[in-house]
Amino acid sequence: MSLRIVVTVKYVPDATGDRHFADDLTVDRDGVDGLLSELDEYAVEQALRIAEAADAAEVTVLTIGPEDAKDALRKALSMGADKAVHVEDEELHGTDAIGTSLVLAKAIEKAGYDLVISGMASTDGAMGVVPALLAERLGVPQATLLSEVSVEDGTVKGRRDGDAASERLQARLPAVVSVTDQSGEARYPSFKGIMAAKKKPVESWDLADLEIDTEEVGLGGASTTVEAAAERPARAAGTIVRDEGEGGKQLAEFLASQKFI
């Protein structure tokens, strides 16, 4: 039987751009270019490698977001994913992590899955909790933050590098996995891949398709409220000296004046 892999990806504002908040204190997605979150490229890459190593496999990429989010799906398809699902609904604007995990979980169940692969975190919200929330919602094992991952005989194995120790993990499928940026360099889409992606199927689902109440998502359904957002005040210009043989000593003098020595 074919191994069904669903990769969750996010379309995020470019981290090297000038990111801001909109008037309703959600992330401003209009003022800056978007792209497939860099950390999700590692998830797509591992999904493709696992699929290539399997007898038969199908990789579906899944995203939630406005029309532009299709760009993230196209990128993943051009890397080699087989098909895509785009969950789009006006009511989703302002959905928080808990709500996002609900929508993703419903979509993953509807798509059908043996293995879910996510990136370690998004590069905008950067909470890093969605994979754990998905495992909780789907009621399947969580093997997260893996720097090395493989699937064999219905079991996923991997290495999770923590601060105190490096752990080897093992779980039966179906399972939710997240991978770090140490898991392996993501491939660049080939010209052939880019052309092929144009013909691959992209399904669009809305909240009704997923049987989700609008009250459970969006800004209204969010279980957290952002009350204020302010740009961090620019740091006061510091002292900059050019080393002319005494740079180390001058720096020591500064550190002593600040009581660090």
Partner: peptide, 23 residues
């Protein structure tokens, strides 16, 4: 250097050992 309270423009292979000695 836009972030610093104190910055040294120089070769770290000169500055770091001198700083270590001084400390």
């Amino acid at each position: 250097f836009d972030l610093v309270d104190y910055g040294v423009v120089g070769d770290l292979f000169e500055v770091v050992p001198q700083l270590t000695e001084e400390i």
